[in-house]
Structure formats: C-alpha cells, structure tokens
Design a protein around this nucleic acid. Structure first.
Lengths: 254, 254
DNA sequence: AAGCGCGTTACGATAGGCGTAACTTGAAAG
DNA sequence: CTTTCAAGTTACGCCTATCGTAACGCGCTT
C-alpha cells in the first residue's frame, strides 16, 4: 500500500478519502463514479460507498444519468463558512468597496499548500472584466501574488520557490535569482504591480494584509485589462488597496 | 447502540459521523471538542480524530483557544456548489431581480426532511428588512411556505403534516382540518399570502416553482414588514413572483 | 492542595469497511 | 442479432483501520 506519511492513526483515513471525493466532485461537475475512482486511485466499491453516504446527506447529488454534482448541503456549509472565517467575512465588503471605486475585479488571496488561493472576490458590473473564481489556485511565483512570498523568512521563502519556475506567459520571471531580487523590491515598496505575468494583457496589483506581528496573512488584489489601465490608474489602485489592507488588519483586531 | 436504520454496510459510518461533525460546527461556531462529542453522542477520541482530519484539509479551523470553526475549504466547496446546483444557479439572479423591484427580501425554499429549507436569498440595501439566511429551516405548516405542501398528493401531504402543528405566533394555523382547507385554497389560486404566521408583523408571499410535470420543486418568496406593505404591494409581489417562477421553470428546461 | 474538566495519548479488541470477484445492464461493435 | 466491453452494482470473507477504555497532563476553580 502507499502510506504517504508515517500515517499515524490520529486521523481517519476514510474521512480523508471522502474529502478527496468531495473536492473531486467540486472540481469536476457531472463526474462519474469510475472517473472519481480513477482520479483518486481507489476502487469503485469504496468510492461508491462514499458517494452514497455523501448523497444521503445532501452533500452531493446524483443525476438520473448517473453523474455527480455537489448538493444543497454543500451550499449551506459554504455559506456558514463565509460568515465564520473572519478574514473572509471582514474582507468581503471591503473588497466590494475597492472594486466599486476601481471599477475592476478584486480578490483576496492566501497562501495554501505552496500556492496562492482565492478565498473571496468582487467583480464589477461591466461587460469586460477580469474573471475571478473562489478556489482558483495560482503559482506564488508569478504575477503580483508574489507579495505573499515577499515577507516570509528568507529560508521559508526559498523553500516555497520551486526549482523551476512555471512559465505562464513570456513575461513570467523564471530565474530564481531575479525573483528573489524582485521580492526584495516588493518588500521595500510594500506592494507589487505585475504586467502580463499570469495572463497576457492583464495588469495585476497586490498589497499584503499584515497581522499584528508584521507577518503576511493574505493579499488584496486588483486585476484589470492592460489596455484601459494607465500608470495613474495603477497608482490609484495601490492607494485603494493599501487603505483596504489596513482596514482589514484593523478589523481583525490588530 | 442506536442503529436508526437497518444500516446496511453500503454506506460508510465514519463518513456519516464526519458530516455530522461538520454540520455541528457550521451550526455552532467556536464550538469545542467536548461539546461536539456530547451533541452527537460520540466519544471524544473519535471526534478528535475526525476534527483533526477535517482540519488538515482546511474544512475546519481550530483557533488557538481550542474552538473550531469552518475553514476555507468549506467556502470553496460552497461556492462550487452554488454554481453546480442548477436550481440555485438559475434562481439567484432572478431572486435579485425580484428583490430589487420589490425592494424587499426574497428567498428560494425547498422541502428537505419534512421542513422548508432556504437555499438562496437576496436582501435589498435598506435599513429595515427581513433577515434571511441560507440553511435556515422552517416548518412547512406555517407561513406562506405552505405552498410547498399544497401540490403534493393528498396522502403524502397528510404524512408531512405532523399531529400537532407548531405554533409560532398567535396567527399560526394549528388545526389540521383548517390547514388542509387552506392548502386547497392555495392550490386553486396558485400562491399563498401569510400575515404574521411565522413572525409577528411580517407579511410573506410565496409562489411555487413547477417542474415539467406540475410537481413543485421549490418556492420563491417575498418577506416584508407588515406596516409598510399595502394590499397593492402584495398584489405586485404576487405578479413579480409568478413571473420569476415561470422564468426559473423555463431556464431549468421545462 | 485538592478537585474538576478539558484535551490528549496509548493500546488491545473488534467490527467496520475494504477489495476481489461475480453479476446486471446497457451501449457499442461486428 | 449476437458479441463484446465497460460501467455500476452486489456479495462476502478477511484484515486492518479505527474504536472505546483507561490513564495522563494541564490549567482553573474551589
């Protein structure tokens, strides 16, 4: 068997697998039993039992064609969670405020599992806008999400930076040395602006959200199409985001 | 032990318990290990193992004081779920539209486990408004949510109506005969208006959302303070809700 | 100091639940 | 129309994951 970790018995494996199943269904709507089993490297009977259990509780729903989606109980959990996770609850109205003023898409991102993870967002009402999605992951090394990296202890920082940096566009930084230098600059100026590092033609501005001890717990971000974003806009975004960031820190009680 | 059902082994018990744990944390933010164990009638070690597993995966988060809340993974699941559950995805913008026009709170409710369950909502921007909450349950027999009952087969209907009807306010119907008569009326007129049956001083209007076969899969609802709601407003709400209902049915492909 | 209740650890016993193998069904291929 | 294949499902005996008991450490309260 593949025991990934020393695998102490202080954790329940079948629950672990069931979480894998849930996340798999979340990621692949209308997935079938066999696919889930394959994706997870588990047997079909096992996954069948899991899915049945989840279905009885409304966490997933089986369509009459035999495909699975998340169910209403998952909605309930998620709604409850957004009011229980302080960071998200507090950031949401602030993200909206910044988004309204900038008239562009805003996001709140944290470090999760060596990647940056979107946990809250706002999109303005306008035909062309950057698309954001809660749960979407991006590398920490590309785009303005680098701010999340910039304030870590140098050692941890290096640990978080993979050997080879993923190249998303031709502007993505792929040299470790250059990246570290860039992180230095970010730390000094307190924000990061990136032009087309993640997607061509997009400008992204991020500012760190600080905890009481100066550690970075999240980043607030504005993303906009490059063609309509002047230098002056970027400067405005930075100001807006800095305000937002300190407001969030304050409301968190720091 | 209490094996509620014949309890075949085609379902995984530990997963079932872990769902109980999740829902318990959802309902009681900042709950402690011992409380969860008590609520569920399980032993502490068992629940500890579950919570640890859930925590490692970000479904719950343990504060430094030892209390548990839902975590970021739950948010991700929930967001994904709202886009995967057709009914909710389609209803959301429509609920908002109705809510804007009525300038009052709107809800989408389904039957779940013998109760009515709110699975989507919209609240207008105004100081005084009815508070709605995704996940909140109400009896099927009180308020305008009765529409959910009105179109069921008489047999099933009677089965859903408990012996003694819970009294929420002095206007709540508590006589089974009267209730059945009321349901008849609702079926004939196609909507339900209730005055202060659930909460004093609140008016609630509901219209059923029909499936292709005429069965009711949900109800759309407007809730408003009685003092600012004239007869003419109620009539407007009914029209708005009927439009909304058929729009939802149509978008669901019926 | 003593007592209480919480979270946690250790460990041996047990039944929960796992995988193999076989069956059903329905669709695709020949 | 038969054959083949794969997906979903069921059955069941074995094994180990996981359960509960009991005990421990720790911080508060009395």
């Amino acid at each position: 068997m593949d025991k990934r970790q020393p695998s102490k018995t202080d954790t329940v494996q079948s629950v672990d697998v069931c979480i894998d199943v849930l996340l798999n269904v979340a990621k692949n709507p209308d997935i079938r039993l066999t696919e889930v089993a394959q994706n997870l490297g588990e047997t079909k009977p096992r996954i069948l039992r899991m899915l049945r259990t989840l279905e009885r509780r409304g966490l997933v729903r089986k369509s009459d064609t035999g495909t699975y989606r998340l169910g209403t109980t998952a909605i309930i959990l998620g709604t409850a969670a957004s009011t229980q996770v302080d960071l998200v609850r507090i950031a949401n109205p602030i993200l909206e405020e910044v988004g309204q003023k900038a008239n562009e898409t805003t996001q709140l991102r944290i470090i999760d599992n060596g990647e940056s993870l979107c946990i809250a967002k706002f999109e303005p009402m306008r035909d062309l806008r950057v698309q954001a999605m809660i749960g979407r992951r991006r590398p920490l090394t590309a785009g303005s999400y680098k701010v999340l990296l910039a304030y870590l202890h140098p050692q941890v920082q290096l640990q978080m930076i993979p050997e080879t940096l993923p190249r998303l566009t031709k502007r993505t930084i792929t040299d470790r040395g250059k990246l570290v230098a860039e992180l230095d600059k970010i730390r000094r100026q307190g924000f990061c602006v990136s032009y087309g590092e993640v997607s061509e033609q997009l400008v992204s501005v991020s500012v760190p959200v600080l905890a009481f001890d100066g550690s970075v717990i999240a980043a607030v971000n504005v993303g906009a199409p490059a063609f309509r974003t002047q230098k002056s806009d970027v400067d405005r975004f930075i100001v807006l985001l800095k305000e937002a960031s300190s407001k969030i820190s304050a409301r968190l009680g720091w």
